[in-house]
């Protein structure tokens, strides 16, 4: 076994902060929605908004970081070997076959991850973000002179926001589970905490790092 350093300090901070915020916002968001009573509506709404601003701040940093470090390339989708990875998760993982993908500093995510994260970043996040801000500034929108903006009802905004929240929930469940599929159940999680991932040094990766 060898160890390589793949998650940098900011990346790890960003990941865990975001994870905490998203989970917290799911909890408070669905309380606002009326699904249950936990903190009390008033508190839930208040904290959800505070968390939203924190998350937006975090994202702004993250976007800046991704572009200045070039890390955004990690999410460029690739179809190469995607079938092999899908095969691995549906068959190989049960038979003890090796993972067809080898992480490296230049390629941290397997093709399936790339696709999933890209979907989150290009679709779910913006949808939550835009609909959330629209929700927050609904009064200003409604008072807007631009008909296309003032015409949007709060119901529509809430619908988009809630839909995005459901998608986020589904993603979160899958993501949590997949984090346990390393060579040991806690391997990936450890990596995200320490930054170091164990790799099989002797076995060459089935998919050469790009």
């Amino acid at each position: 076994m060898a160890r390589i350093y793949i998650f940098k300090r900011f990346e790890r901070f960003w990941h865990w902060a975001q994870a905490a915020l998203i989970i917290f916002m799911l909890l408070t968001g669905f309380e606002i929605h009326g699904s249950y009573a936990l903190l009390g509506w008033e508190k839930a709404a208040d904290l959800h908004t505070t968390a939203a601003w924190t998350l937006i701040g975090l994202w702004l940093f993250a976007i800046f970081w991704h572009f200045t470090t070039g890390e955004w390339r990690q999410y460029i989708p690739t179809s190469k070997n995607i079938v092999a990875v899908m095969n691995y998760y549906s068959v190989g993982i049960f038979t003890g076959a090796p993972h067809p993908f080898r992480v490296s500093q230049l390629s941290k995510h397997n093709p399936l991850q790339r696709l999933a994260y890209l979907l989150v970043k290009l679709f779910i996040n913006p949808l939550i973000w835009v609909s959330g801000l629209a929700y927050l500034y609904y009064n200003e929108l409604a008072a807007s002179k631009i008909a296309a903006l003032s015409g949007i009802s709060l119901g529509t905004i809430a619908l988009a926001h809630t839909a995005a929240a459901f998608m986020m929930l589904a993603f979160l469940i899958g993501h949590l589970y997949l984090s346990t599929t390393g060579h040991t159940p806690l391997a990936h999680i450890k990596a995200m905490i320490t930054g170091w991932e164990d790799v099989d040094a002797d076995k060459p990766a089935a998919v050469p790092a790009k």
């Binding site: 009802s153 119901g155 619908l159």
Partner: peptide, 18 residues
Amino acid sequence: IYIPGRGSDHARWLDTAG
């Protein structure tokens, strides 16, 4: 009027599907 938290305002399909 959409009142956040009022169940009757929700799109039933979205809650069910979600």
